[in-house]
Design a protein around this nucleic acid. Structure first.
Length: 595
DNA sequence: CTAGGGTTAG
């Protein structure tokens, strides 16, 4: 969005000198001005407002502060989208040109529009006017709306300063500051401000609590969340639908799905956000099946899902591999003329690629009009999963052509694409570019991916050296990648080192032991393999059975390691054996590429 | 006639 007019031209209007506010007479209830005021207030569209504006320009007696306030209010309340700050400011400028002075009502209207559109520069200019007219010091509405502009624009220091200098703070001032910290990604500070508010003997209302609860959700701090929940009971805060939704969201994000579900079920009023909070929250907790059950319930009751609901449903389908259900959602989207773009488009791309339909994923991606970093990342990760490294790399280079900056996750996809395709040099180059060109700090996942890449290419000593030179502490993923590479290339000694490190980090997991004992077996070191298995038994290392699932004609088939409950398990096992021996005949390298 | 509220992906 761009503003053709950025400046209020302060110097040419009123800012050059401090303006004493003239006492303006209240409009006479029988004057034409009064009648026009009522009419402007009853306008139902921006077009009607504009007609009155035209009238005001023509008729001098209508050019008063009150009339301009009403017009500005109308413009800012009808134009919820873009452009309201510009339009409001143009009206404000016109008002100043006519020699009129803003009132304590004018400034909040203007600032609200600025806050809605994150128009920081315009807000700053109005800030100057608020000082010059003396309104900032005398009116708490002016101060609170100004604080809000700074808060939503991320200038939390300015908001805090205004707050500190404010002699007559009210609950809205506190709430605005708390929200400022939440919006700038500092939930910890937000909660601290809330407790200071309590010390200052203010009692939170529903609006404050919704924000505080969202801070708890961001922190994922369950005991804090429960503490706030108790505070609500102690202070008799009403539980309206907003508070209920915030509670559901908070408890889910803090990992207490049961409490969230209970609150959800007890809510006397629910709206689509309530359902979305449940569905998305459950999905976020990895409870995808539960999320879909809630969605089914929502459908049964007849609540119409919105695009956010569908994102949650698609995400659940993606993670359960439910291609048929995912396709159903896609059909629903088409049927209801929901655009397969933005959030929805990205979720569709992810669903199709996670469900194995990379061609469909590509089709959705190519059909999107607005692609962002999430869209590109989703398709690159998908292509990487499907071994389509060349296309992943091509789409990555498209990204910079259209000016979208990759982020950490994009690189994860890119590096894994290189890794799976055995493109060691190309992967290393991208890894270096990550910090050098894009200023992104590689995380342990990226290092793990590089170890995997080097390991698959057989460059095990390079991988070992790479780990030694890591600027951050290698974690289980890094050692796991090394161990996996050792397994593939039969490097028993290095594998033992990786296993030792893995066991140090997560002694309760069995994966490292299993991999290592398989390695011993492959190297005909049966005694070592046995020793390891015995050790596991002694230490009571819990075994997590591997599980995979696939959907076929709408039925989910689950396979757990060591379990033979599937009706066609023998047929499937026989096929897999044949398939594996077939693969082996292609030679070692091909098997590695497949692994 | 003016200010503060929840859910959004890889």
């Amino acid at each position: 969005m761009s503003f053709p007019c950025h400046s209020l031209s302060i110097s040419t209007t009123i800012a050059a000198k401090t303006i004493p506010l003239p006492a303006s007479p209240e409009p006479d209830p029988v004057s034409p001005q009064f009648a026009v005021l009522r009419k402007i207030e009853s306008c139902k569209s921006i077009e009607e407002i504009k007609q009155f504006h035209a009238l005001v320009i023509k008729l001098r007696p209508l050019q008063t502060q009150f009339v301009y306030n009403a017009i500005i209010r109308g413009v800012t309340s009808f134009r919820t989208g873009c452009g309201s700050s510009l339009e409001a400011i143009l009206l404000y400028r016109e008002m100043l040109m006519k020699g009129l002075v803003p009132t304590d009502y004018t400034i909040p209207f203007l600032l609200k529009a600025c806050a809605q559109e994150f128009a920081l520069r315009e807000g700053e200019e109005i800030h100057v006017h608020a000082i010059k007219t003396g309104l900032l010091g005398s009116n708490v509405y002016v101060k609170n709306t100004l604080m809000r502009v700074y808060a939503v624009c991320g200038v939390i220091g300015a908001a805090q300063k205004l707050f500190d200098e404010c002699p007559q703070r009210d609950l809205v001032s506190w709430t605005t500051l708390i929200q400022g910290y939440v919006k700038t990604g500092s939930p910890r500070e937000a909660v601290e401000v809330f407790f200071r508010m309590c010390e200052a003997s203010f009692v939170a209302d529903e609006m404050t609590l919704v924000i505080v609860l969202s801070a708890c959700a961001m922190l994922g701090d369950l005991s804090l969340g429960k503490r706030i929940y108790r505070y609500m009971h102690e202070n008799g805060v009403k539980r309206d639908v907003f508070v209920g939704n915030a509670l559901v969201d908070m408890f889910l994000k803090c990992g207490d799905a049961d409490l969230a579900r209970w609150i959800f079920s007890e809510m006397p009023m629910k709206n689509v956000v309530s359902w979305n909070s449940m569905i998305l929250g459950l999905a976020q907790q990895g409870k995808f099946k539960e999320a879909l059950v809630v969605y089914e319930e929502m459908q049964t009751i007849g609540i119409r899902p919105d695009d956010i609901t569908l994102v949650g449903v698609l995400n659940s389908c993606a993670n359960l591999g439910l291609l048929e259900s995912g396709k159903w959602v896609h059909a629903y989207i088409n049927k209801h003329k929901i655009s397969a773009d933005g959030f929805i488009g990205n979720a569709l791309v992810d669903m199709y690629s996670k469900c194995g339909s990379i061609n469909q994923a590509l089709r959705v991606f190519q059909g999107m009009k607005h692609r962002d970093v999430y869209s590109y990342t989703a398709i690159i990760v998908g292509l990487a999963m499907h071994g389509e490294a060349a296309l992943a790399l091509e789409i990555f280079s498209d990204m910079s052509l259209v000016g979208i900056r990759p982020d950490e996750v994009t690189f994860l996809g890119l590096l894994s694409a290189c890794s799976h395709a055995g493109l060691a040099d190309e992967g290393q180059r991208h890894f270096e570019d990550m910090s050098r060109v894009y200023g992104l700090e590689p995380q342990t996942e990226h290092y793990a991916c590089m170890v995997d890449l080097l390991g698959r290419a057989g460059l095990l000593s390079d991988a070992e050296e790479f780990i030694k030179n890591m600027p951050i502490e290698p974690d289980a993923f890094v050692w796991g990648a090394l161990l996996g590479a050792c397994k593939v290339h039969g490097k028993v000694e290095l594998g033992e080192l990786a296993m030792k490190k893995l066991v140090e980090i997560e002694p309760e997991r069995d994966g490292a032991y299993i991999l290592m004992s398989n390695m011993y077996s492959s190297a005909d070191r049966w005694r070592d393999a046995l020793k390891l298995r015995r050790f596991m038994k002694e230490k009571h290392v819990k075994k997590t059975p591997g599980c995979s699932s696939i959907e076929l004609d709408g039925i989910v088939h689950e396979f757990r390691k060591g379990e033979k409950s599937h009706p066609k398990i023998e047929e499937i096992s026989r096929f897999l054996e044949e398939f594996t021996s077939h693969l082996k005949s292609y030679g070692q390298q091909d098997i590695i590429a497949f692994a």
